[in-house]
Design a protein around this nucleic acid. Structure first.
Lengths: 122, 122, 122, 122
DNA sequence: GTGGTCTAGACCACT
DNA sequence: GTGGTCTAGACCACC
């Protein structure tokens, strides 16, 4: 699996990594027990600090997506892919929710929001 | 005009202020040449730092929504209400864009996105 | 509240900090909305890295014991003290469980375990 | 003698091995001069690194429980079974000690500790 | 002032 | 080789 880091983005690097790994799980690119790159190897490949990679792995482990074995490496946990997808859908929902809230706060009607939505979707 | 600050919110306080002033302009509550509360008065009323209020006013002035007269105070600029609305629409568009991007990244089809959208809009 | 760090201990520094803050909450030394020392101030006082303090605060926030406000500081969360105590009791239970397990694994009878227990408790 | 490794456990693999061999000595399954499996054979059987097995054997030899003859193999040392038991009792004592310490740190009385202990023992 | 993120090293324990 | 912890600095955003 290839990782891409946008150093310019406002999104923290460790969150970018987390997102890509979660996406890999949902898409099936990463399957249960698959080994993730070692912290140091990935850090070197992406030319970022090992601590940054570790922070991403730590957070993913805390959320139950991967398991880390001391001295061996990190592996995709046996999570139901559907559960992961459900979790990420909730993230999308939150974005839509804030968009709708902001739209209404600035006086847009539902019809205007729908128009904008269809335009964006293309 | 009454301002409300949510200290718990993830949105920075200065952005909350900016949003509420922009909303006031769009809704007509705040009209051209209306005086805004002084930085110190608003800071005291909301129990926040004067620097935070100043940052909001500065940003609004940079965006052309208000004008600040040294030694007198801040006033709603003679902005076309439509311009304000246009600026805010762009913000909504950005939120929708990131939602769509994240949705596709986690494997949602356009149809699924549309379903979620209609559900949220209700 | 005074913090004590044992640099010799095998327990990581950040865990020592977490334990002491949890203890403070249970004992009532730290109450809801009390401000914790800033990351940098505590790091300087204890002569440890600011990142180490931050790691402790981050973990405590993830467990719901404290809340951190960007640019302001960290505060004791409005957790029911009973809940904290319950969580820590579970930690004690795990230690006892492993002691009993190991004792039985090396052939100790329940009576022998009870004797040792009473001896330790004095 | 059959060995069991729990890869999920928080206890290091080499310690798991050491514990099982000590238990064998106490229970009499392993007696003086009994040959232990070769480092390589045991590593292959358990699908772990030979270095890990070596580390366990080295530690056991340092503690006097086994003797290793270069080029021949490892054998149970002529240790008094009581001595092994005594050593393991000390490990149990350490666990109880840390449990009591943690319990008191979180405000439990001796009576509460006793209650929990009796509950766990059942 | 505060926290949020990141770096480039180091040492240790486990495999 | 691996991960686990820690350091001493840096830059940024927010208050």
């Amino acid at each position: 699996m290839r990782f891409m880091i946008h150093n310019t983005s406002m999104q923290p690097i460790y969150e970018q990594l987390m997102d890509q790994i979660k996406t890999g799980i949902v898409e099936g690119t990463l399957q249960e027990n698959d080994a993730l790159p070692s912290v140091r190897a990935l850090a070197k490949e992406l030319r970022i600090s090992a601590l940054t990679v570790k922070k991403a792995y730590d957070a993913l482990e805390a959320e139950g997506f991967i398991v880390t074995v001391h001295g061996k490496g990190s592996y995709i946990a046996g999570t139901d892919r559907g559960l992961v997808q459900e979790a990420r859908r909730r993230e999308v929902e939150e974005l839509l929710e804030s968009a709708i809230q902001k739209g209404k706060a600035c006086g847009m009607t539902e019809e205007e929001l729908r128009e904008m939505w269809e335009l964006m979707l293309e």
